[in-house]
Computed example of a mutant assay.
Amino acid sequence: MGTFLGHISSGSMFIALSIFWIMKQSYHLVATRNLTRQNSWLNIPFFRLILNFPLEGAAIMIFTTGGFIGENVHPHWKWKMFVNGKFVYTNVWIHCTIWTTFWIYGFVKVLTKNYMKDAITWVPVFRTFTYFIQCTLFYFHLGAHHVITSETGQSQNGTQIHHGGRSLMNVKMHIMAVIATFLSLMFSAGEIWLKKDKIIPWLRIWASLLNGTWLVQIAFTLFPLKEINKWDEDNHQNAKFVVMLFGWHCMLTIITTFVLHMVFTIFIRTAFKSVSRLDILAEKSKTLKTDGNISYDSD
């Protein structure tokens, strides 16, 4: 994950999942208000696919498998954990551990969708577990505290040194990533006990979307495709700006969540009304046909 592609791939997964969750949550809200005709949704091929196929779990497994392999082959081959009795590529294997926990979550989603529906209550537990592992590993492998080499708080050349050789801006951006992950963890855990709460799922979706957009931001800021776009990572003004930028991400993602919810709700209601009209026409046609048969028999 310590590359442009690593952050883009993980960020894209969270963004895609969040958009899917917004659509899914919008569907459930509209469907529960139309219980008398909820089965009509099965007549819409797109929603039939979502309802009957473990799309979410399968997508997570594909994403995470690609991420796991990518960590070990890009930018060079790294399929080793020990060399001469010593740990190597520890950061790579930390990232692979995160990918593995999300793969397990995806696998549980597939199982509970089609084969073990009685175990569906375990889904939020495994989702919370994945966020816990991500948050813990991010925090401790980041080293959120500054390590200073002298009493003045600077190294001999006057540059501040941070744990793991990270720059000031790098540390701050990854602290923000830890915060976004912790929010996802907290709201996901809330869903385990507060299953009927209507707000917590939206907060969890928002936090996951924030997690994704911020990882994409890290990719373009710390690992730019062109050297000319590289930031001065030890500049305090830049470090303060990225903290403010995180606030912008918080605002934009909550607005995006709300707007997408409105868009999906309008689309779903429109589709629902169209299917309802078709059902009504089908029922009228069936009634007319039945009446015609009855009058024919009475003759």
Rank of each mutant, 00 (worst) to 15 (best):
V263M: 09
S285M: 12
W99K: 06
D279A: 13
P224T: 05
A282I: 05
F246L: 00
L260H: 11
H162D: 00
L111A: 14
T136V: 13
S155A: 08
N84E: 06
F187H: 07
P201L: 02
F126C: 09
F246T: 05
A58D: 04
F220A: 01
M13W: 10
G164K: 01
T130Q: 02
M116D: 15
L142Q: 14
F246C: 04
I8A: 11
T90V: 10
V83P: 03
P54Q: 07
H174V: 07
L260M: 12
N39W: 06
S10Y: 09
V88K: 13
A16S: 15
V216N: 14
P224Y: 06
L252R: 05
W214L: 01
T64Q: 13
S295V: 05
L29A: 14
Q160P: 09
M173I: 09
T112N: 00
I255M: 11
L203T: 07
T256E: 03
L183H: 08
M176N: 12
Y131V: 02
M116C: 12
K78R: 14
L260C: 11
A119M: 15
H174E: 05
A144V: 09
V243M: 11
A180S: 04
Y27S: 04
L55H: 03
P45F: 03
D297V: 10
D232R: 10
I62Y: 01
S167E: 00
L29T: 14
H261N: 05
C135H: 07
R37E: 00
H146Q: 14
I133E: 12
W99S: 02
Q156N: 10
L183I: 06
L17N: 08
F264R: 12
S167W: 02
A219E: 05
N114F: 03
W41D: 04
T213C: 14
L51K: 15
G247A: 00
M1E: 03
W77R: 01
L225S: 01
G247S: 00
I228D: 13
T64H: 08
G67C: 04
Y105A: 08
A58L: 15
Y115M: 10
G57L: 06
F47Q: 03
M169N: 05
G106S: 07
R33F: 00
R33C: 01
N293A: 14
K24H: 11
H249Y: 10
T3A: 03
A271S: 08
F46N: 06
T112C: 14
Y105Q: 08
